[in-house]
Design a protein around this nucleic acid. Sequence first.
DNA 1: AATTTCATGCAACGTTGTTGCATTTGTGTT
DNA 2: AACACAAATGCAACAACGTTGCATGAAATT
Lengths: 142, 142
Amino acid sequence: MQLRPEQILNDHQLRRTAVRLAVLRIFLEADEALSQSYLEQQFEQVDRITLYRTLRTFEQKGVIHRALDGTDTPKYALCAGECNEHAHHDHHAHFHCDDCGRTYCLEEMVAPRFHAPRGFRVDEAHMVLTGVCKECLEGVSP
Amino acid sequence: MQLRPEQILNDHQLRRTAVRLAVLRIFLEADEALSQSYLEQQFEQVDRITLYRTLRTFEQKGVIHRALDGTDTPKYALCAGECNEHAHHDHHAHFHCDDCGRTYCLEEMVAPRFHAPRGFRVDEAHMVLTGVCKECLEGVSP
DNA sequence: AATTTCATGCAACGTTGTTGCATTTGTGTT
DNA sequence: AACACAAATGCAACAACGTTGCATGAAATT
């Protein structure tokens, strides 16, 4: 996992701009999957279209991946490092807390191999877990 | 699995209206998860708000469930029968075909029990498989 | 058949996804 | 250090979708 925003942009051949660096910093601090609207709120002022395109570019280039969490709001999280322009490797599970609404990447939890049912060919498998996260269970968060 | 639309409405204490019956008939014939916009196209003429509320009501009452398929378009499918106003039991996997875009319920494929990681409490587990469906593999569909 | 309860249709609004275009900014080159 | 080119940004604009309020019409209950 790359640690510095500048490094990440270099690795993916992306120009070093203010918005991109800021977005990466937010992701690096967050350690969870974030929605575009959440990101927007982290800025004093930012153009939502720029943010939209930043996320789209990041996803295409393999910097972030979409975290499937069962809600209607797409969320994104930093890729672990093996992702690039050509392929994503985000086959870990995602956990959505019904209490605080946060979505976590469970890097350690990889989807098991499934045999293709009904004559289908399975290319990818994703898992979505829902429940209550540790912090909410402990009553730390509302 | 109930077979007649009228029966389904009765079972869930829902009024027998034209739109609801029509929607149920489409679902019964489809045997796959459908989006609201697809449903809209099946009608000569229908109010999208009515359709929206119909789906919402059906979901709340346990007639249909949301099929998580990794796309941005929510899709719905008939519940197998054990669902009601209080709880859904749609823990089977869903398969999304990247070719034709259809989403299938894999009733026979139930999410395995997962132990809760990081001190989280897992209430539900969903699986989303993507790939190519049988029909597309066989070249029947475009 | 009358009454009540609920579904419908329409207006309306907010949010989000998306594109085009002019301007600004980053980056490799002179 | 200045230049030139390509790419990112900011803004306008629009489409699609989710959502609510309200008046009207249809179902179920008596």
